[in-house]
Amino acid sequence: MKRRRFLQYLASSGLASMVAGEGIKAAYAPSMRYLRPPGSHDEKTFLAKCIRCGKCGESCPNRAIKFFSTENGLASLDTPFIIPREQACILCMKCGDICPTGAIPKIEYEADTILDGVHMGHARVDVNLCLSFQGKTCGVCYRACPLPDVALRVGMLEQPYVLDKCVGCGLCERSCIQIPQAIKVIPNHTSAS
């Protein structure tokens, strides 16, 4: 009899957890423009694989990786993120080395492997804001880009043109001297399946 009551208890709490889960799912509604650490999979896989140990942040020499509280929904509580305008990723790949679960895959610190494996986002230039497009040669984003001429190319008057291989580290957005910034990284994780 005791065991049966216990099983009933278990079943009903399972049902209750389903209902609670719906609530938590509803609370998950990303409204921020953030990047996941370099090499991360799409959002769904990332959330499933990450155990929220915080070691990626503890290994980031640039202190770019921060951690969500409840602002991005309960499902991404304590998961790592990067706001490129505040502090961008320098593509050192240390977080992938230390990640125990493969949520951030291990990627070698080589230009080829980084171009292959990292798809944090893609930079986009606002031509109306960009100084170089207004005739005031600037070119700061190009100087900041870790993959110049591979990810970002400049025209005669230093106008930036983002190339397909841009990995979305955000160093251009961080360096932009316009306020608001004329070059922005559009994250990949929201569009990827």
């Binding site: 278990l10 709490s13 399972g14 209750a16 957890s17 389903m18 609670a20 889960g21 938590i24 799912k25 769904k44 959330l47 499933a48 990450c50 155990i51 929220r52 140990c53 915080g54 951690f67 309960l74 499902a75 991404s76 509580l77 304590d78």
Partner: peptide, 26 residues
């Protein structure tokens, strides 16, 4: 048990949020 069911259902490791040693370290 409920945590494991919820983890499957939500696709997120929930224990990290309610497990004191993990919380303390973080």
């Amino acid at each position: 048990a409920v945590g494991l069911i919820l983890s499957i259902y939500l696709g997120a490791a929930l224990f990290a949020s309610i497990y004191p040693p993990a919380i303390i370290g973080r």
